[in-house]
Design a protein around this nucleic acid. Structure first.
Length: 292
DNA sequence: CCGCGTCAAGTTCAT
DNA sequence: ATGAACTTGACGCGG
């Protein structure tokens, strides 16, 4: 049974796990109040999602604002241990799944060592969030491979080397997603073979940056990369915004494409589907209702 | 109180 | 060479 979800913000309830502030206005108490807001809103979102039967959710990267930045000196894992643990219990009770997706600044394969260190810190923070909820390794962190720097092969090798050096607490949660510019699905599957990291398939990225091989050939390999302890394969779906830049997410999901992707994936195995639409849960509600 | 300029970070691409 | 765009708003200052 495929589970569905969306990222970071609930349009229907106007709740978000993204409350943050600007660096210069950070104080410990400001951070505490934002964290409390994010925790409260996450609880409310998960309840709202459960009522609709949506069991997947992506937590925003600023759930703990500046979570990987030295300016955040809080021991938030201890301070909020109880409520974070309660969220984890709720998630497990209802067979939900949480993910995180660090932004474009998280570049593991950068030639700049400081950038790599910051990326590792961001991944460590993301893993800490999921750990603090006592969630197992099916609750994933999704990243892209990173930059090319004029030499894709050595940039990919650098990525692989960095992944193999990561602490297991991070690596066990890590998954890699292909994207619309550089690393296509084939590239990422090859990197998956070298690292053991499962691959997230994304229909819009595939359309924008296709492989020589047909999708039907690669998808079984993608699904096979998800081991029992990783949970079922995670798939991202979005529709192209008409008239916008290639790769821009549409407000809503095109039902025809949506059910085509579901049908394609269903033939291979079990999977979970994240809808990446500007309309968030409203888009999910709409496209799932359309089918009935 | 409202509106608009600005926001940690890296990389790529368009101008 | 410069700056916008990206996962995408949300904050916060000035009026």
């Amino acid at each position: 049974m495929t589970r569905y979800g969306y990222a970071c913000i609930s349009q229907l309830t106007q709740l978000t796990t993204n409350h943050s502030c600007q660096l210069k206005s950070v104080t410990p108490d400001k951070l505490r109040s934002l964290i409390e807001q994010n925790i409260n809103d996450l609880e409310s979102i998960l309840k709202h999602n459960l009522e609709h039967g949506w069991l997947l959710f992506r937590i925003g990267s600023s759930f703990i604002p500046f979570g990987s930045h030295p300016v955040n000196t809080l021991n938030w894992q201890e301070e909020y241990a109880e409520s974070l643990m309660a969220i984890g219990t709720f998630v497990r009770t209802h067979d939900m799944r949480l993910m995180m997706h660090p932004g474009q600044y998280t570049v593991l394969n950068s030639p700049d060592l400081l950038t790599v260190q910051r990326a590792i810190a961001e991944l460590q923070y993301s893993a800490n969030v999921l750990d603090s909820m006592n969630l197992d390794q099916q609750h994933k962190i999704v990243i892209h491979v990173g930059g090319v720097y004029g030499d894709k092969a050595s940039a990919a090798t650098r990525f692989i080397e960095q992944v193999l050096l990561l602490p297991i607490a991070i690596r066990r949660r890590l998954t890699i997603e292909h994207e619309e510019h550089a690393y296509n699905l084939k590239d990422v599957v090859a990197i998956s073979c070298q690292t053991g990291l499962p691959v997230v398939y994304d229909n819009l990225h595939f359309d924008a940056n296709p492989t020589v091989e047909p999708l039907e050939e690669l998808l079984p390999e993608v699904f096979a990369g998800w081991k029992a302890e990783d949970g079922v394969s995670e798939v991202h779906f979005s529709s192209q915004a008409v008239g916008e830049r290639r790769g821009t997410h549409a407000e809503f999901a095109d039902p025809y494409e949506f059910y085509k992707v579901i049908e394609q994936c269903s033939r291979i195995g079990d999977f979970d589907l994240m809808l990446e639409a500007k309309g968030k849960d409203e888009a999910l509600e709409r496209v799932l209702t359309d089918s009935e």
